[in-house]
């Protein structure tokens, strides 16, 4: 049975190195995914992911048990990504090719055909999302991909919940339209 996040955190706070390693392993995919969405460059995303975990380690004491850990981690990841992007503002933005769309956590239950279909679907989605506005990509990433609640996103982005809902619906419709343009058979 897997340890729940709260127990894992408590063990980390007590200085258990093994628990800390477990926590990094558990959340590395999430953090790296968020970093890839913002940075759009695999190497930079890895550096940012490292920085996020170092920051988590330093702030373990500051994390209150009444919060949920994942939204806290995602909020921290987003803030660090935005800070990093601000610092490199003068630098030209990397293209989508810098992030390997196949670098997804593999599911061992998949047959080769299913895995191939899933890979091409992911590739299609990444290409479609890459053409969206930053705001729409961000809200899709937070709500539809990372699964944050509307209230959590509203708190994070400092906008009303109604705005989050309407922006998210608009972004989903936009993505569906972009996907149709790239592959008319998608969803048929």
């Amino acid at each position: 049975m897997l340890l729940d996040d709260a127990t894992l955190l408590e063990r980390c706070r007590q200085g258990d190195d093994l628990a800390w390693e477990g926590l990094v392993r558990r959340f590395q995919g999430r953090v790296y995914s968020v970093a890839c969405h913002y940075m759009r460059n695999a190497e930079e995303a890895r550096d940012v992911a490292q920085e996020v975990f170092v920051r988590i380690y330093e702030r373990l004491e500051a994390f209150h048990g009444d919060q949920t850990f994942l939204p806290w981690v995602l909020r921290l990841s987003r803030n660090i990504c935005i800070d990093t992007l601000r610092r490199q503002k003068a630098r030209p933005r990397a293209t989508e090719a810098d992030v390997d769309p196949t670098a997804q956590l593999a599911s061992p239950a998949r047959t080769p055909e299913e895995a191939s279909a899933a890979r091409s679907a992911r590739d299609l989605l990444y290409r479609a999302m890459d053409r969206m506005s930053d705001a729409d990509r961000e809200i899709l990433m937070l709500k539809e991909i990372q699964g944050l609640k509307v209230e959590e996103i509203a708190l994070l982005l400092k906008v009303p919940t109604g705005t989050v809902k309407s922006r998210c619906n608009r972004a989903r419709l936009d993505l569906a339209e972009r996907v149709r343009r790239l592959d008319p058979s998608y969803g048929a």
Binding site: S33, C36, Q104, A106
Partner: peptide, 12 residues
């Protein structure tokens, strides 16, 4: 399913 990406073995 896009919520997680494999950062490679080095990150940990």
């Amino acid at each position: 399913p896009l919520a997680e990406r494999d950062p490679g073995p080095r990150l940990v």
